[in-house]
Every structure is written in C-alpha cells, then in structure tokens.
Design a protein around this nucleic acid. Sequence first.
DNA 1: CGTCTGACGCACG
DNA 2: GCGTGCGCCAGAC
Length: 120
Amino acid sequence: MTRTSKTFRMPEDADFFDRVYAVTRLIPPGRITTYGAIAAYIGSPQAARTVGWAMNASHLQPGYIPAHRVVNRNGLLTGKHHFRHPSLMQELLESEGVIVIDDKVKDFAGLFWDPSRELI
DNA sequence: CGTCTGACGCACG
DNA sequence: GCGTGCGCCAGAC
C-alpha cells in the first residue's frame, strides 16, 4: 500500500505568515510547489503574492524554511534574486536533484507537490 | 490614515 | 503571446 499523503493539522491560531511557513517546511526535498498552491491551501487562493512576501522574510524565522522549493505557477525561479546569491536558489534545487534550465524547473508537472492534495 | 510596492495568478483585450 | 488591472496581506513612509 502506498502512502502519498501525510496527515497534517494547521494550528488554528496561526496567522497568514505562520501558515505559509508551516506548509513550506513540509515540502519534501527534490519536490517543488507554487506560491499559489500554498495560498490556496491556507484558505486565501488569491493571496499568492503575499506568499512571496512571506518568503522574503522567511530567513528571519526560526528553523529551516526551504524557500527555494517554491516557484511560480510556470516553474520559473522568480525569487532567485532574493537569495544571498542569484544562483543559490538553482544550486539548492540541483543539490536535491531538480534540473533547472533557463531559470525554469524541468519536469515541473512531475515534481509538483500540491499541499491541497498531499496533506490531509 | 492614504498610498505604494511586492518572490503571484487570473481575467480580459 | 503580451500588456493591463485587480485582489490578496504586510510593511514602509
């Protein structure tokens, strides 16, 4: 029997940013998701932009937040300029086996990790 | 308090 | 395929 989803309970009192970070931490290495998918999962399907804003402050949060695993809906590494070096986002992804060509994730569909589908 | 700016995404022309 | 406008949430000024 294959288990493709994991149980996960979002803290009731978590604010928007905390919810974003909670989901982002659950993205498995070598997989990717999108700003919009995270926004939709935490109940604000039109707040993809705000998810990006949250990523901008992710390095100030306690613990490790794999922000490099979040790309835009086309698989583009739109957040690369916010890492210590513009190439770091791609390097982190490639270290996990993700191929990036021209700032775009290869096999985006196959690597896409949708919290709405993976988390219960 | 008003206004602008985003690591977005969608509708529309 | 490209430009424009808007909602979403938060922070800067």
